[in-house]
């Protein structure tokens, strides 16, 4: 159980761009995530949230400090840390099915038979209700659907941790709400460990077990952490007046708008 409590360990991570004299983006960030936990990272734009996620993904190297996932140090990107990118990043020349299948074939091609890889691809598309549209090209489906395919592709990798980089940022409010409910349901069913970047307070409170609040950049660090002790499944409408929900929301809003107001004209 010791390992499961410290499933993801971020230890004293610093990040500067452009060498020693460059701009410091992250300063001394340390965070531990339990297995199966849903953690949101919230902060104003430009504070380095995405940089932190990219460091965990292995896409950006940290200037100093270490990241461990399941006791293995992160040195490069890999399918055990699947990323759902903000702009979905589907390959436009492949169909919905092929986009997911590409990942499945690459990761399980050596170990698992073809028919089973097909079933697994379909299973993940069904999970996000995109099985029917499997032969469509990304250009032929809506933004919300694209993001669902992106999620299916990430889930199909059977990652140890799912990294969501503002996955709902580019969607309209209704689609966003719908997709949030879906992600909540899937992560509860599958028990995924999730790290999500967001700048939406309601979204963070609704989805997360813990909300990590970053101070403003440059040299952002963890300012405060808010536990969200709400029972699951959580229902959006029932939570509106729930005192715990309201309290958490107020705490995060307070942090963002009073203690760490975004000074630049955004």
């Amino acid at each position: 159980m010791e390992t499961n409590d410290r499933y993801v360990q971020i230890e004293n991570v610093h990040k500067s761009f452009g060498g020693a004299a460059g701009s410091e983006v992250l300063r001394d960030v340390s965070l531990t995530v339990r297995k199966g936990e849903f953690v949101s990272i919230i902060g104003h734009s430009g504070c380095g949230k995405s940089t932190l996620l990219n460091i965990v993904a292995g896409l950006t190297p940290a200037t100093s400090g270490n990241v461990f996932v399941d006791n293995r140090q992160v040195v490069e990107p890999g399918p055990d840390r699947a990323v759902v990118f903000q702009n979905h990043s589907l390959l436009p020349w492949l169909s919905v099915y092929q986009n997911v299948r590409l990942a499945v074939d690459k990761i399980f091609g050596g170990t698992i038979a073809k028919a089973e890889r097909h079933d697994w691809t379909m299973r993940n598309l069904e999970l996000v209700s995109m099985a029917e549209a499997r032969n469509k090209k990304p250009a032929e489906i809506s933004g919300g659907m694209k993001q669902r395919v992106g999620i299916a592709r990430a889930l199909a990798m059977k990652p140890k941790i799912l990294l969501l980089d503002e996955p709902f940022g580019a969607l309209d409010a209704l689609t966003r709400a719908h997709l949030q409910d879906r992600v909540m349901q899937i992560s509860m069913e599958l028990g995924n460990t999730v790290m999500m970047i967001t700048h939406d307070v309601e979204e963070a409170v609704l989805l997360s077990d813990r909300i990590v609040m970053l101070t403003n950049g440059p040299a952002a660090t963890i300012g405060s952490i808010c536990e969200v002790p709400l029972e699951r499944p959580r229902l959006r409408l029932e939570l509106i007046a729930d005192p715990t929900y309201v309290g958490c929301r107020a705490a995060v809003l307070e942090f963002l708008h009073k203690r760490h107001r975004f000074v630049d004209a955004a």
Partner: peptide, 26 residues
């Protein structure tokens, strides 16, 4: 290294709840 899975299944024995989502534009 990541492909240690013998058979493909998501973590806990998940039951798929049929979800009412329209996958086609109306």
């Amino acid at each position: 290294m990541s492909s240690t899975a013998k058979s493909l299944q998501h973590g806990p024995p998940a039951k798929v709840v049929p979800l009412n989502v329209q996958t086609k534009p109306p």
